[in-house]
Design a protein around this nucleic acid. Structure first.
Lengths: 357, 357
DNA sequence: TGGACCTCCCAAAACGATTTGGGTGCGTCC
DNA sequence: GGACGCACCCAAATCGTTTTGGGAGGTCCA
């Protein structure tokens, strides 16, 4: 196995084709195809001959040619909408995304598929293979997401992680409505004395933001002794945006506008940033203000104090999305699963007096 | 835009082809191809007509057919050898892998490629597109890794992250020899009083394990007042394996076999586990034993005490690997970059008396 | 008038597989 | 001996592009 000179141009080494195998075995390409794929009728003797020739030549069917003919590539794509907004990869605090990708990739591999990471496939000039996949997973679609339209037009099965809030007919999504989660978090903080609440929500139109907002409003409706304010903070502001937000709150407090008793920030980076901003401004967390996050992230775990959060279980979401998609590709109609998040109580909220064991 | 009934089989909706566009515009398919790709000579009038027809029909060239003809797919693959060993996705403590994938994906997307995550492409029966990519990145290849042979045979450019220790002629890799890193860590612990050292290395034959081992041995050679023991611990043992290892060390100490003064565990999960095992067994870290990790991970950051570690900068590795690969695909010979790791001093090692500012 | 040279367009040949729709030869049965 | 069935094999069509190698028609110049 000679290697080309370092940096030399791509070796023109033509991989052997089905024609080469046919010639080597002294049969037609039809017979080779049949022998290798166990189709048609091929005598045992001929089949062995073909297998030997294929092995001798190191033949591996060209997946592109096969894909052209069969319209199957063995590839599923994953569109991470969060990436499309963030614009750039953020090295810290986006581990939800990372875990999701990892879980989806491994699940796909386990099922004999490969996972293709793509950016918005609706963009013109996208020369790549994004529209030639067997199926597509879209994570956190925005309202009326055009990716769903494009895939449907092409007849490519698509499932989402988190529903499309503008598309009630689209039911092939997994995730959780987020209602229970909001009730649990707000309820905990109420039980430990909070009455003035602030919910900090991102600016994207995805299901998570919308459904969480609705859940918070409904909760406030059901708890008239509590007061709830809503603020928007763009996802792309990240941790630093949270810090500024927290400091601004503290500054306003010195000017007479009272601090809320409890803050529920949906994004982990925001929550951790807010805690940091408040603490730096001398506000006691959780003594004066309690803070909780709607999505666990590394910053929540590493924060001082650590931030109470919800684990949305990206590993499970990734795996279940792949399995649902494969079912759809096979024409199945297995129902989509809900994935209930896990509540993680940490230091940034107060412990309930008579809590669980 | 009607949607199919939920769960209905894939809609047979045939996407429009170049033939449809040609018919619609009243020209030949050659002309369509030329007009859309700015090749050949097409009058401005005809070109406009073609563009209009293409837009009207929502035409997007079939990437598979194009790939068959041009032998270019716009896809690069990433083989994570660690995944092949671990066998299963580990939700915690493999954030090095996750960050690498994320960085590589985003870098590829920025350059107009998509990233395909694949498992060992040398395996028989791998029906997928893994051998039809434009290039391949292999992370942490093992000694004489067969993936490199397969890709070379097919003339597919390949670059690695970390060298192949059994292949000196293969220079298209990025990373770091790990020598400086070992010297720095062992030196720090020596400077703070340690004399009896223990290095804990994984069992894989990749460059990181091998080069780190050599670096440690060389360091011991150069520091004759120090004593160095080597132990192997399989990567797949993870955090729990580290815990057991640490507890075993502590148990042996009560039986008269003295504890080392300093432990250098290459794998972050091992290091954090060892700290946990030692602390649980009542050993003071860093008072009695110092511990450092060769690869930062979330467990290192979240451990109590936090674990001194080295940030191998997976974000940079992922991006540089993609850029190097694209250069090779274009036939370039730009030299590969070294990516120097960053030393992160934390609580599990003692502070040097007269350290840096 | 004839040829050289544009400009603009197209038919057909790839690319490498799968699949359709027969062939061919042989044995069996009436 | 002829019809039929079976086992085995193959030529050619097909998938949707790109690219090659002209061809038709017009202009310009000798």
């Amino acid at each position: 196995m000679q290697s080309p000179a370092p940096g030399s141009a791509r070796r023109p080494a033509r991989a052997s084709t089905i024609k080469d195998v046919a010639a080597h075995a002294g049969v037609s390409i039809t017979t080779v195809s049949h022998a290798l794929n166990n189709k048609g009728t091929v005598s045992e003797r001929t089949k062995q001959k073909v297998l030997e020739s294929a092995a001798a030549l190191g033949y591996r069917a060209n997946a592109i040619a096969r894909g052209l003919r069969t319209n199957r590539t063995g590839v599923i794509s994953l569109v991470m909408r969060p990436l499309d907004w963030l614009g750039e990869y953020q090295p810290v605090g986006v581990d939800y995304f990372m875990r999701l990708v990892g879980a989806a990739a491994v699940s796909a591999l386990d099922e004999g598929f490969t996972l293709l990471l793509v950016r918005d496939p609706t963009r013109e000039g996208n020369q790549s293979i994004t529209l030639a996949v067997d199926g597509c997973i879209i994570a956190d679609p925005e309202a009326g997401d055009p990716v769903i339209d494009v895939m449907r037009e092409r007849g490519i099965p698509i499932v989402s992680i988190g529903r499309d809030v503008a598309r009630d007919d689209f039911t092939d999504w997994i995730g959780d409505p987020g209602t229970e989660q909001a009730n649990q978090i707000l309820g905990l903080m109420r039980d430990t004395g909070a009455r003035r609440f602030l919910t900090v929500i991102g600016t994207q139109t995805n299901a998570w933001n919308k459904d969480s907002l609705l859940a918070c409003l409904a909760w406030a409706e059901a708890n008239p002794d509590c007061e709830l304010a809503i603020e928007r903070l763009s996802e792309s502001e990240g941790f630093e945006g949270g810090v500024r937000f927290g400091q601004a709150l503290a500054a306003q407090a010195t000017e007479g506008r009272p601090l809320p008793d409890a803050i529920y920030a949906l994004t982990g980076r925001h929550a951790a940033g807010i805690v940091d901003g408040l603490v730096r401004a001398g506000v006691d967390v959780p003594g004066r203000v309690q803070v909780a996050s709607g999505n666990d992230s590394e910053q929540c775990r590493a924060s001082v104090p650590t931030v109470t959060a919800v684990n949305l279980r990206p590993e499970v979401l990734g795996r279940e999305a792949v399995l649902l998609l494969l079912n759809r590709i096979e024409g199945g109609s297995e129902p989509a699963k809900l994935v209930a998040p896990i509540f993680l109580e940490r230091e940034s909220t107060r412990r309930a007096e008579h809590g669980q064991p």
